[in-house]
Design a protein around this nucleic acid. Structure first.
Lengths: 356, 356
DNA sequence: CTGTTAGCGCGTTCAT
DNA sequence: ATGAACGCGCTAACAG
């Protein structure tokens, strides 16, 4: 009699390893316990408070960990612990040294707190910024540092609403701790400096004014000028790109001598370097002889530029550090926390573009 | 009769909220289920595959989520899923545009894969690099991208040993997928270019040669020269800092006319910009008239430099993208994966420092 | 379509 | 000093 077909078919052996492309889960604390001949509780103790476990068992556990290549599972640990020692930081972009300085300062301070800092690059895209904010939120990080784009803060508000501390860097908003740089003062310092040099026909170059930093710098320039009893003309730009700097250079050079500014307060180094280069090499206007120029940001290249550029340095690293400290405080204080805003002051760096 | 004291003491009410400084855990899926009047399974469905749940219940669940400010707990989700859609990237440093380009390319490609990219800055410190490698390892990320410092790869080897894919960027090592740039070719291109210009007394500036990238560029320079039947002198530097560039400039300028190189292949823009500036402004040596110069890296500032610098551009963004693609493949293929090294080619950008 | 339930890996009592 | 057992929040599998 024929064996029923359904029985004659060999049962496929259980897959030795997971399906193709699937990664195995790796050894767990239970595997370690089995190999070491102890219980999971003991392994956990050996891992977290080695002091309370007998040296002999400790050694056996360590041996098993080594042999198995065991790695602690952070998801499980965080799940039971209910909190995390990781801080998330979302950055508007990475391509300028100011932001990078902020990140480095934050990194240093966060590590000093015994925490770790994970960075996410929003790359000047609001949806991406919000994506990473949510990722950190869902990951239950201890807190979030955000150097946001100049745009609505819905994502940050939501995270904050979930009770997770969020500290803003280089951006002002109600309901958050924040670290700001005194933009107004930066504009004031640069302008004051040109006035001290005896320059009187001043222009502020930069835009659009929807960039709040630029608007602040312009306000500072106006205040300094007003105190000296002179005017500051505003030469607007559509962006902070070098091309706009070259355009302004041409515009300035084209004016008759008496109407041409003898001092330019420029809102960004990118703009300023291009402007100076165009002025000196194509329009035959001397810097600082005919026109003294200040930039803004102290980008890493401006001291090695053709005409080293006088500029306003923003203390990025300090800002990162302060932000991390504000965050730590907020984590510590919980609900009783009251928000604080730290304002740091920029610094004028005098170089050849204005020191003639 | 006196009531026993132990009974007369009012029992302290259970703490309304956790102890000071402790953060509450926030609402869980169970809270949502309770409020919506459904089971946790249904909530999970509503969250993950909304299609299979009745519109009415879906709405109730969404309402409850909204009202409670519920946030998915990624630790728990990853724990049960056993895998993660996050990729970790450890960067040797953030302060140069090449690395940042790599990070941006990687970010873009990783997002396109439906994954997220988290960055960690090692800040040129090996323990920090290893710390973040372990963090990602414990977090069970899908894989790790590493742009490492020029140092032993123990940490990466360990992570790899745990079965987690690690792709190296800008570093060569056995047992890993990697993306490299052909340094030798970069040196060759720059040197060939100067030879095409008719320059015959060539020098290569840079060091130390323990930097493998610098050594490769020098090899390429030597090969190009050999093919043309000329020699390349090596002018070593102790670092790639601008100061060393100025030092070399002085050294070159001090030589008698006949012994002075008429072509400089310089191993880094930082060095080259400083060298050119010193040559032209302090030593009265014309560039490219007396000496033609090439740099390396295409740092963002060299096109706006005094004398715009001819340089070798490394396709950072492409490298990041390729690395992310290699990683995705390795994640996909699991154990059957065989390591691949992608070599991308640099590109010569001719500018004024050599185009006279 | 919805409810129930069994783990995922770990830290933590509480006994022993 | 060690072990057993519970629960963190969630998904998947299955039962209804």
């Amino acid at each position: 009699m024929a064996i029923p077909e359904s029985r004659s078919v060999a049962v496929p052996p259980p897959a030795e390893r997971p399906a193709r492309g699937r990664r195995s889960r790796g050894p767990s604390i239970a595997d370690v316990a089995r190999l070491a001949g102890v219980s999971v509780g003991t392994v956990s103790h050996a891992l977290n408070k080695p002091a309370v476990v007998a040296p002999a068992t400790l050694a056996r556990v360590e041996g098993a960990v080594e042999e198995l290549g065991y790695v602690r599972n952070r998801a499980a640990r965080d799940l039971v612990a209910g909190d995390s020692r990781t801080v998330g930081m979302v950055l508007v972009a990475l391509d300028n040294s100011f932001i990078v300085d902020i990140a480095r300062g934050a990194e240093e301070a966060v590590r000093a707190q015994g925490r770790s800092l994970l960075l996410a690059n929003a790359d000047v895209d609001l949806p991406t910024q919000d994506h990473y904010l949510s990722l950190f939120d869902e990951s239950r990080v201890a807190g979030v540092l955000l150097a946001p784009l100049d745009a609505p803060l819905d994502g940050a508000v939501r995270v904050r609403g979930h009770g997770r501390p969020v500290v803003l860097v280089n951006y002002a908003a109600e309901g958050f701790c924040g670290v700001l740089v005194d933009e107004e003062r930066g504009g004031y310092l640069a302008t004051q400096h040109l006035l001290d040099l005896g320059r009187r026909r001043l222009a502020f170059v930069g835009g659009p004014l929807t960039l709040s930093a630029v608007a602040g710098r312009l306000r500072g320039a106006r205040r300094a000028a007003q105190e000296a009893g002179v005017e500051v003309e505003h030469l607007p730009t559509r962006s902070l790109q070098p091309g706009e700097g070259r355009r302004v250079a041409a515009e300035v050079a084209a004016r008759p001598g008496g109407e041409r500014p003898d001092g330019l307060v420029i809102a960004a180094d990118s703009l300023a370097v291009a402007c100076v280069q165009a002025l000196t090499t194509v329009h035959d206007v001397a810097v600082p002889g005919d026109v003294a120029v200040t930039g803004y940001d102290d980008n890493h290249f401006v001291s090695d530029a053709p005409v080293p550029l006088t500029t306003v340095r923003q203390p990025g690293q300090e800002m990162g550090r302060r932000a991390a400290e504000l965050l730590a405080r907020e984590v510590e204080e919980g609900d009783e926390h009251v928000h604080t805003t730290v304002v740091v002051v920029p610094e004028l760096l005098v170089r050849a573009s204005s020191s003639g």
